[in-house]
């Protein structure tokens, strides 16, 4: 098994006719993902490399039984696309778009939580279950099938750690980029819970960064709810307070959200925290033996 995406995935892509949308959709399909539909309002009836395009998400789901949507819509229209995805009834929504206003995401999040659907992102690189399916923009060549689950707020750092793992002969069950925004659909806890239930996942790597307190909450969850071991990495020890470090969510507010506080919270619950990506891979290797 793997989590969230795999052989069962029937993907629709909102914003499929844009340059990035079309490029990554094609790459996802080449990897083996079952891409069944695209959505661009006003372009219904066209196709992108043979993938039928619909005017609305609802039409796309009715016609193709899509169960997953990837959102590539530009930031100023993305919240609307997310509401549309939720209302179309797909089980899983993965939003790649970076730059959605935080207040828009509050509304999307509140609406989403009235139901059972899952949103991953926004501002995330997507999800890959190596050799099964990929949804998003991750460079697939750095991942290999294996037993380690990986959940991260950062794209390139995920690739880096995956490559370090590959050099030690360790592959992944599923890799989930949850996104670098202050409001994201799935938290560390949501994904850790899924890895805990996944029989194929024997260890989880959690990659956090400054801002918010999701890592601290995850530390509690790991101690109380998980039997699967977790190895962590936190980026941003050198970040000054009050400055946004690239990601909209990577900011120390007042005295809260520091890397040190996260490290202390995790270590207090017995979670090993690597000091650099190479050491994370080494810790994983030790724990897997």
């Amino acid at each position: 098994m793997s989590i969230l995406v795999g052989a069962q995935t029937r993907l629709m892509v909102q914003g499929i006719t844009g340059r990035e949308g079309a490029f990554h959709t094609t790459r996802n399909r080449e990897y083996g993902t079952n891409v069944v539909a695209g959505v661009t309002p006003g372009k219904g009836g066209q196709d992108v490399s043979g993938i039928p395009v619909f005017n609305s998400a609802r039409e796309a789901v009715e016609a193709t039984a899509a169960n997953t949507s990837m959102v590539f819509v530009p930031p100023r229209f993305a919240a609307d696309a997310l509401f549309e995805a939720i209302d179309s009834g797909v089980e899983l929504i993965i939003c790649i778009t970076e730059g959605i206003p935080a207040h828009e995401m509050l509304k999307v999040y509140t609406h989403l939580k009235r139901g059972e659907q899952v949103l991953v992102g926004p501002n995330c690189p997507g999800i890959i279950s190596p050799s099964k399916a990929t949804v998003g923009i991750m460079p697939t060549q750095v991942f290999t099938p294996g037993k380690v689950g990986l959940v991260s707020r950062s794209g390139t750092l995920t690739y880096q750690i995956s490559k370090e793992l590959a050099q030690l002969g360790i592959g992944q069950s599923t890799v989930v980029g949850i996104g670098g925004d202050p409001v994201v659909g799935s938290s560390f806890i949501d994904i850790l819970g899924r890895f805990e239930e996944d029989r194929e996942t024997e260890l989880v790597v959690m990659v956090g960064e400054i801002g918010g307190n999701e890592e601290e909450k995850a530390a509690e969850f790991i101690a109380n709810e998980m039997s699967t071991p977790v190895v962590a990495y936190i980026a941003g020890f050198q970040a000054p307070p009050g400055k946004q470090m690239g990601h909209a969510g990577a900011i120390i507010t007042g005295s809260s959200g520091t890397a040190e506080a996260k490290r202390v919270a995790l270590e207090a619950k017995g979670v090993r925290v690597g000091t650099n990506p190479t050491e994370v891979a080494t810790l994983v290797k030790e724990r897997l033996v």
């Binding site: 950062s154 990495y233 970040a239």
Partner: peptide, 17 residues
């Protein structure tokens, strides 16, 4: 200079270490 927020933050940390 790096690419990706997380990797750049990590680079700062590694330089400090």
């Amino acid at each position: 200079l790096g690419n990706g927020a997380g990797l750049v933050m990590s680079t700062l940390d590694v330089v400090a270490l």
